[in-house]
Amino acid sequence: MNWMAWTIPTAGFFSTIIAILTAMTIWELKSPSVERKGFLPITTSRGDRLFIGLLSSAYIHLAYLAITDATLWIATIISVIWMVIVMRWG
């Protein structure tokens, strides 16, 4: 693994994604989701909303990097708030 630049933030990021996917899998097995229509223009399940939220969070970070040189913690906070909104009302 010498070719990979593993830093604490990188390891934390991937560990968090793995933890989220594991928790969502257990939640889905315990309580299967029902598709519903929120503010998103399609009918979605919990997994769909998770995917949409993660993908749009990546775009939030990319846009933030394109616009400013400030710390990425601000983009991360915006992304977490966005994920909560999408998962709850999406």
Rank of each mutant, 00 (worst) to 15 (best):
I67H: 08
I74P: 01
W27T: 06
A58Y: 13
R46E: 04
G38Y: 07
P32H: 06
M87A: 13
L62Y: 10
W6K: 00
E35Y: 09
S45L: 04
F39C: 00
I81K: 11
P9G: 01
V80L: 15
L62N: 03
R49S: 09
A63L: 14
S79F: 02
L65Q: 13
I42H: 11
M1L: 06
G53H: 00
T44S: 14
V34L: 06
T16Y: 08
T43C: 08
S57N: 04
G38N: 08
S57L: 05
T76C: 07
D48T: 14
F51M: 12
L50R: 02
S33K: 06
I42G: 01
I18G: 02
T43A: 14
G38I: 11
T68C: 04
W73H: 10
Y59V: 13
V80H: 06
F13K: 00
S56H: 03
I78E: 04
K30A: 14
I85C: 12
A66F: 15
S45T: 13
W73A: 14
R88A: 14
F51I: 14
L21C: 05
D69Q: 08
E35I: 12
L54A: 10
L54P: 01
P32G: 06
P9E: 01
I18W: 04
I17Q: 07
I77A: 14
M87I: 10
L62A: 07
T10K: 11
T71W: 09
W3T: 09
I77Y: 10
W27S: 05
A66E: 15
V84P: 00
T25E: 05
S79I: 08
T71H: 15
A11D: 03
A70N: 10
D69L: 03
T25P: 00
V34Y: 11
V34K: 12
I18H: 01
G12L: 06
T43Q: 10
I81A: 15
V86L: 06
L62R: 08
L55G: 09
I78S: 08
K30N: 05
S31F: 09
T16I: 11
F51G: 01
L72G: 08
I20Y: 02
E35G: 13
I77D: 02
I85W: 09
S45M: 11
A70E: 11
S79N: 05
L50N: 01
A23F: 10
Y64T: 08
G47H: 02
A63N: 06
R88H: 13
H61T: 05
T43W: 09
I77H: 07
S31C: 09
I17S: 04
